[in-house]
Amino acid sequence: MIQELLNSGLHWEKKEFKRNEFLKISGSTDTDIYFVENGSVRIFMMDENEERIIRFGYTGNIIVSLDSFLSGKPSCFYIQAIKKTSVRIASKRDFYEFIHSSDENLKFWNSILEDLVLQQLEREKDLLTSLPRERFERVLKRSPKLFQEIPNKYIANYLRMSPETLSRLKKS
């Protein structure tokens, strides 16, 4: 269905981001939706002086600062390229015109939102799980591709553990 979205006639602007370049910064309103053609990104916020990664996106994923995209208000989240990343960007206005143009498109958007809610619930369960091994195993089972696409230091942050603990868990 994502391929249909890309070929739907919806205007997608192609853009490349260098490693560490920001697609979106904290305090800005996200009025775009992104399809990652190649590469990887992280969505994070700052907690005092510490980064807190909440999500990753890599080849084939649709990503967005959802709080801002839905509310039209500024978000505390950053979206940053982890490595050289190519994305297709559609404006919220164009995207909403597309999803409201047919029942099938609206169902597709609802399925994306439902999937995001379920992913977020899984993420919350991960954070409530106290043992690092359990968090690691849950994420490995759910998203094995993550460990091929994303550097360990970012995965460790996402899992709320040290890179050394992650390394030990991966070896065992």
Rank of each mutant, 00 (worst) to 15 (best):
2 I>D: 10
3 Q>G: 07
9 G>A: 10
10 L>T: 06
10 L>W: 12
12 W>V: 06
12 W>G: 04
13 E>H: 13
15 K>L: 07
19 R>Y: 08
20 N>A: 11
21 E>N: 01
21 E>A: 11
22 F>Y: 15
23 L>G: 00
23 L>A: 02
23 L>Y: 01
23 L>M: 08
24 K>R: 13
24 K>C: 09
25 I>F: 08
25 I>T: 14
25 I>N: 13
26 S>Q: 11
26 S>P: 05
26 S>E: 10
28 S>R: 07
30 D>I: 06
30 D>Q: 12
30 D>A: 11
31 T>G: 06
32 D>V: 05
33 I>E: 03
33 I>T: 04
35 F>L: 05
36 V>Q: 00
37 E>N: 12
38 N>D: 14
40 S>D: 02
40 S>L: 05
40 S>F: 05
41 V>G: 01
41 V>C: 04
41 V>L: 03
43 I>S: 02
44 F>S: 01
44 F>T: 04
44 F>E: 07
45 M>L: 14
45 M>R: 11
45 M>E: 09
46 M>P: 02
46 M>A: 05
48 E>P: 00
50 E>L: 11
51 E>Y: 01
51 E>L: 07
51 E>R: 11
53 I>W: 01
53 I>Y: 04
55 R>T: 10
55 R>Y: 10
56 F>Q: 00
56 F>K: 00
57 G>E: 02
60 G>F: 09
62 I>T: 07
63 I>K: 01
64 V>A: 13
68 S>W: 02
68 S>K: 06
72 G>D: 09
72 G>Q: 09
73 K>T: 10
73 K>S: 09
75 S>H: 00
77 F>G: 03
77 F>H: 14
78 Y>D: 00
79 I>N: 04
79 I>S: 01
81 A>N: 02
83 K>G: 05
83 K>L: 05
84 K>S: 15
85 T>S: 06
86 S>K: 10
87 V>P: 05
90 A>W: 08
90 A>N: 06
94 D>N: 12
96 Y>K: 08
96 Y>N: 11
96 Y>F: 15
97 E>K: 15
98 F>M: 11
99 I>C: 09
100 H>T: 13
100 H>C: 13
102 S>R: 14
104 E>K: 15
104 E>N: 14
106 L>R: 10
107 K>S: 14
107 K>C: 14
108 F>T: 07
110 N>V: 10
111 S>N: 14
115 D>E: 15
116 L>Y: 10
117 V>Q: 08
117 V>G: 06
118 L>E: 12
118 L>I: 12
120 Q>V: 04
121 L>K: 12
122 E>W: 05
124 E>Q: 10
124 E>G: 04
124 E>T: 11
127 L>A: 04
128 L>T: 08
129 T>I: 10
129 T>A: 08
131 L>Q: 13
131 L>G: 07
131 L>A: 14
132 P>K: 08
133 R>G: 03
133 R>P: 00
134 E>V: 13
134 E>P: 00
134 E>L: 13
135 R>I: 08
139 V>L: 03
140 L>M: 13
141 K>N: 15
143 S>P: 01
145 K>E: 13
146 L>S: 04
151 P>N: 03
154 Y>P: 02
155 I>P: 02
157 N>H: 03
158 Y>W: 07
158 Y>I: 06
164 E>D: 10
166 L>I: 06
167 S>Q: 07
169 L>T: 06
172 S>F: 11
